[in-house]
C-alpha cells in the first residue's frame, strides 16, 4: 500500500482510527451539546428581553 513517494505523509491505520474516534465520540458530541446549550442560553436571554414565551 505504501509507496516510496508518500513516505513523508505516511498515516498509520491506528492513527486514523484514533482520529476518527476522537471526532465521532468526543469532539462532535461535545460541540453539539455546547451548541444546544448556547441556543438555550440565547433563547433565555431573548425571554429576559421580550418576556416569557407566549401562548401557542
Amino acid at each position: 500500500m505504501n509507496t516510496n513517494s508518500e513516505t513523508k505523509n505516511e498515516v498509520s491505520a491506528v492513527q486514523e482510527t484514533k482520529a476518527f474516534l476522537l471526532i465521532s465520540a468526543l469532539a462532535i458530541p461535545l460541540l453539539t451539546v455546547l451548541g444546544i446549550a448556547g441556543y438555550g442560553f440565547v433563547v433565555w436571554m431573548m425571554q429576559l428581553l421580550m418576556g416569557p414565551p407566549g401562548h401557542f
Binding site: 500500500m1 498515516v11 498509520s12 491505520a13 492513527q15 486514523e16 482510527t17 482520529a19 476518527f20 471526532i23 465521532s24 465520540a25 462532535i28 458530541p29 453539539t32
Partner: peptide, 26 residues
C-alpha cells in the same frame, strides 16, 4: 491534518456506520 484528509485505511462503510452509531448513541 489527518482529520482534514481523505481516509487511507478506514473504508467509507466503516466511517458511515461508525458515524451513524455515534449519532444514535449520542
Amino acid at each position: 491534518k489527518i482529520i482534514r484528509s481523505p481516509s487511507t485505511h478506514l473504508s467509507l462503510g466503516v466511517l458511515t456506520l461508525g458515524g451513524f452509531m455515534a449519532g444514535v448513541v449520542f
